[in-house]
Design a protein around this nucleic acid. Structure first.
Length: 314
DNA sequence: AAGCTGCTCAACCGCATGGAC
DNA sequence: CGTCCATGCGGTTGAGCAGCT
């Protein structure tokens, strides 16, 4: 069919967002909740298209977004989720609620892809001197189907294993899955770990180039942005953790919100999930793979872990 | 110091999807 | 059932920056 782009209109501003625009957008969402993006430019007077507003919010202004410094654990999760799910960044991002799909996509394209390809180069180099089973080698076409299938199975198995490791690490560390992340499509309320509020870093100058780092600045400019939260569960000063649990209570109209609970954590989480984390292959599917795998290998610990989690879920 | 190059990441674009009419 | 519309997603772009020559 081919629809005209939504942003073709004359007078629609493009390019980097200014602090003023951010404030307007945040204020509006603070009052009305995210969603109904079509009405945002009209109601706020922002000369931006609805898409741009949504993107700015989901990729940048949304509370709880962690920027930069991907941990090894996150690396592993992304790598192996990518192996399992492909380039479905939104789905992958739903397992890392502190990261946006855009961030993950960028990180994958700029770091992990290189990392992996250099690794596989090394692997190929090794294989070159031994029995080659790599499908990415130049001899891939000569690999027998059975070999290829075994290779595929091995890859899937590796991905499962790494995901298992990532999950169990998370379980031990009490920081990510239990504390900040909620497996999608669940209504569980993870345990809340009350920790001291960490003040944001010193003010960031509003230059055109540094402004992009400034969700913190939004917090500064909008006292109400922080006001509603007496506590935080984040300690990392580099993260925007303090914002994570400080999103105000949902408006009475409940616009764009579906699943609020009493828990501030689940409030934030459902907020993410409902607003910007769409349907995806559920974790339980992945967990099922892991459980199946664990069962096949007699990994009682993992099975218990998964079952316990599932018990919590239902 | 100046110019070049490569990298990063915020933002844009176009297509897909799903709901409303 | 077909069309329209709003939203979501993934690929791509380009401005700004850092490092190198």
């Amino acid at each position: 069919m081919g629809r005209p782009p939504c942003c073709d209109k004359i007078g629609v501003k493009k390019g980097p967002w200014t602090p003023e625009e951010d404030i307007i957008l945040v204020s509006y969402i603070q009052q009305n909740g995210p969603g109904n993006w079509r009405s945002v430019p009209t109601n706020t007077g922002l000369m931006r298209c609805s898409k741009s507003c949504r993107l700015r919010w989901t990729n940048y202004l949304r509370p709880g977004i962690k920027r930069g410094n991907f941990t090894d654990q996150e690396d592993n999760m992304i790598i192996h989720l990518q192996a399992l799910l492909g380039n479905r960044w939104a789905a992958i991002a739903s397992y890392l609620p502190q990261r946006t799909d855009n961030d993950i996509k960028n990180y994958w394209n700029t770091h992990l892809k290189k990392k992996l390809s250099s690794n596989s180069d090394q692997e190929n180099h090794h294989h070159h001197h031994g029995a080659s089973t790599s499908s990415s080698s130049s001899g891939a076409t000569t690999i027998a189907k059975g070999q290829w299938e075994r290779k595929l199975q091995t890859d899937i198995h590796k991905a499962k294993q790494a995901l298992t490791e990532a999950l169990s690490l998370d379980n031990k560390s009490t920081t990510s899955w239990q504390q900040h992340q909620q497996p999608p499509q669940t209504t569980t309320i993870p345990p809340i770990h009350h920790q001291p509020v960490v003040l944001p870093p010193p003010p960031v100058n509003f230059t055109a180039t540094t402004y992009a780092l400034s969700a913190e600045n939004i917090a500064r400019m909008l006292p109400n942005w922080l006001k509603n939260s007496p506590k935080s569960s984040q300690t990392s000063s580099e993260s925007l953790g303090p914002l994570n649990h400080q999103f105000p209570s949902p408006p009475a109209s409940d616009h764009g919100f579906k699943n609020y609970s009493n828990s501030e954590v689940s409030e934030t989480t459902s907020f993410f999930q409902d607003e910007s984390k769409p349907e995806m292959p559920s974790l339980s599917f992945l967990e099922k793979c892991l459980v199946d795998d664990a069962a096949a290998q007699g990994h009682e610990g993992l099975m218990n872990m998964c079952l316990e989690e599932n018990d919590d879920l239902f």
